[in-house]
Amino acid sequence: MGGDLAPLEAVKGVRQYLAQSPEAHLLLLGDEAQVAPLLAEHDLPAGAYTFVHTPQVIDMHEHPTKALREKQRSSIAVGFHLLATDKIDAFISAGNTGAMLVGSLYSLKPLEGILRPTISTIIPKENGGTGLLLDVGLNSDCKPEQLNQFARMGSIYAETILGIENPRAALLNIGEEESKGNLLAQAAYPLLKSNPALNFTGNVEGRDILLNRADVMVCDGFTGNIILKLCESLFGITQQKGIDHDYFQRFNFENYGGTPVLGISKPVIIGHGISREHAFHNMILLAQKMIYTGVMQQMSI
């Protein structure tokens, strides 16, 4: 029920996914009065899903913690309960981002040894490759030890899900030299450099983000979120100006579905509020891949 275009685009995304994966079984959460007619209209195969009526909706403007506490019959609250009690294997929503993050942190405990979960975003490289940037908004203020763990989790995700062999990890900084940066960057560098689980290649600067300098780039969530929103604007500008280029098309968030929360026990994928059917389809595909590969369990320390 979450998102600006819900529930229609979510239903269309489910239909698109089931057309390619007839063996799958999905559990759909929503207001039956709104969703049931759409399921019938789009002719979803009855045996391919189970529907759970959740009459409450957490709106985008609501305070996430308060809303989760007061709206126990919302799709997000029920979804996290089902995930925490092993009734489902992964949870996807394009609803209230704050509620999804709060639910991830408090309904599912961090993996053993993980100080703080994180969220990442795909970075399209100019050479056709793919990079990963994290954190992009979950942890605005970070400690050096957290950046060290983000790099490790990001490297596992890049290798297992993105198919990047021995991914190069780097610290986003204001210069290439080891001594550059603020206190966080200066303290994080030696931790990353001495981590045997990383293929650490040093610092990268802002101009390197879209180039083939590193596969996994770590920073605090404040910096990462600004970069994420800047990258989103690139796609919007090219659309407004009628620029049709394969590279800029790769900045369309719908190609990647949503953002996974890394460092928790089960896959939780957060979609953009304006997600359409293609994004929902790709979110389900990502969840499926995360389940089958067991990528989350590999991140325990």
Rank of each mutant, 00 (worst) to 15 (best):
96 N>G: 09
43 D>G: 08
37 P>M: 11
188 A>D: 03
267 P>K: 02
173 N>T: 11
289 K>I: 00
43 D>Q: 15
273 G>L: 01
16 Q>G: 03
155 S>E: 04
91 F>M: 08
12 K>C: 09
271 G>F: 04
169 A>F: 07
199 N>C: 06
7 P>G: 09
178 E>S: 06
122 I>N: 10
100 M>W: 06
198 L>F: 05
295 V>C: 01
293 T>N: 06
87 K>S: 10
240 Q>H: 13
138 L>V: 03
58 I>C: 08
231 C>K: 04
239 Q>R: 14
101 L>M: 15
42 H>I: 02
175 G>V: 12
174 I>G: 08
262 L>K: 02
139 N>G: 02
93 S>Y: 06
197 A>H: 13
248 F>L: 13
281 H>Q: 15
287 A>T: 01
232 E>P: 15
184 L>P: 13
132 L>N: 11
146 Q>K: 07
15 R>E: 11
83 L>W: 05
93 S>W: 05
228 L>I: 00
188 A>S: 14
137 G>Y: 07
69 R>H: 11
24 A>S: 14
185 A>I: 11
221 G>S: 04
79 G>H: 15
102 V>I: 12
151 A>E: 07
210 L>K: 09
256 Y>G: 00
135 D>N: 02
202 G>H: 06
90 A>L: 05
126 E>W: 06
24 A>Q: 14
247 Y>N: 12
213 R>L: 00
197 A>R: 12
37 P>L: 08
263 G>W: 02
14 V>Q: 11
295 V>P: 07
250 R>T: 13
26 L>Y: 08
156 I>N: 04
257 G>I: 02
265 S>C: 13
214 A>S: 13
162 L>T: 12
175 G>Q: 13
71 K>G: 12
22 P>G: 01
39 L>Q: 09
13 G>M: 02
34 Q>Y: 12
153 M>L: 10
173 N>I: 07
122 I>F: 07
118 T>G: 12
127 N>Y: 05
289 K>R: 15
127 N>C: 09
80 F>K: 00
104 S>A: 15
72 Q>V: 15
283 M>H: 07
160 T>R: 05
181 G>F: 02
47 G>H: 04
262 L>W: 06
263 G>R: 00
206 G>V: 08
251 F>G: 06
272 H>Y: 08
117 P>R: 03
110 P>V: 03
213 R>H: 15
72 Q>R: 15
77 A>L: 03
163 G>F: 04
288 Q>T: 10
94 A>T: 06
63 H>F: 01
63 H>I: 07
272 H>K: 06
50 T>D: 13
137 G>K: 06
156 I>V: 14
198 L>K: 07
81 H>R: 15
23 E>W: 02
100 M>S: 10
274 I>T: 11
116 R>C: 06
40 A>V: 11
299 M>F: 01
131 G>N: 02
262 L>V: 05
297 Q>H: 14
134 L>N: 03
135 D>Q: 02
116 R>Y: 06
265 S>M: 10
